[in-house]
Amino acid sequence: MTSDTGQQRHASTATRTVVVTVAVVAVLLLGAAVGLLIRLPGTDSSTTPGKDSVDIGFAQDMAVHHLQGITMANTARDKTADPAIRQLAFDIESTQLEQVGRMKGWLTLWGAPEQSVDGTHMAWMESASHHSSSSNGGTSGLMPGMATSDELAKLRSLSGTEFDVYFLQLMLRHHEGGAPMAQYAATHAGLPVVRTLADNMLKSQAGESTYMKQLIAERGAAPLP
């Protein structure tokens, strides 16, 4: 009986994994399709952003930034036993997957690479030099708010309340670190659809950040310095 129960549990877990994987791929492809199809009335190839434009730089860098957020959210969704955190992680993962798909769709439409070819980030921002002084970011290293490989390893090693708090702390810092990029694109991008997406990111992540601060405080902790 014990062996049968274990096999059933393993089969159930495997099935859930397959379902989640298929759903993630479907969402990403849908976002990419939306990105490819969205055009404003009267637009043509002459409106394709230049290779050094805010539009392309933002789409490249924010997609990279989002992918780490998706990774952390996926880890939290699988490991936490807290329903509030699981729901938050699901919401973040779903939203950012769709946004990544949209941005990658745009880059394909524009004939641009998915990432900066020289490995630098945020050169499209006039204030990039300000961020290069950050201990957790820089134009040639990790962007502001992104977790290091050691921090991600620590997150995976934790469990229970310690895991929940550290996830919230890392994700809050991640949201706050990406906000200046979204703010700059919302103001300076050349295409209205890019400005709109960046503005939507700011609004949704501001609400999530406020909520994460509340969850952190309720668990007797504080945001990372």
Rank of each mutant, 00 (worst) to 15 (best):
S3R: 15
D4T: 15
D4P: 11
G6T: 07
Q7R: 15
R9N: 14
V18L: 07
V19T: 07
V20A: 01
T21R: 14
V22N: 07
A23I: 00
V24C: 00
V27K: 04
L29P: 10
A32W: 00
L40W: 05
T47A: 00
P49G: 06
V54H: 13
D55Y: 08
G57D: 00
D61M: 05
D61N: 06
M62N: 12
V64Q: 14
N74R: 08
T75A: 01
T80W: 03
A81D: 06
I85A: 00
F90P: 11
D91E: 03
I92F: 03
I92K: 10
Q96P: 13
V100N: 02
M103C: 08
K104R: 00
K104W: 01
G105T: 07
W110L: 02
P113H: 03
P113I: 12
S116M: 09
D118K: 13
D118W: 01
A123E: 10
A128M: 07
S134D: 09
S134Q: 14
N136D: 08
T139N: 12
T139R: 15
G141R: 06
M143V: 07
T148C: 01
D150P: 12
E162G: 07
F167T: 10
F167W: 13
M171C: 07
M171I: 15
L172I: 04
R173D: 07
H174V: 12
E176N: 13
G178C: 01
G178L: 10
P180H: 02
T187G: 02
L197Q: 06
K203Q: 07
S204R: 01
T210P: 08
T210K: 12
Y211T: 09
Q214H: 10
E218M: 15
E218H: 05
A221T: 10
P223M: 02
L224W: 09
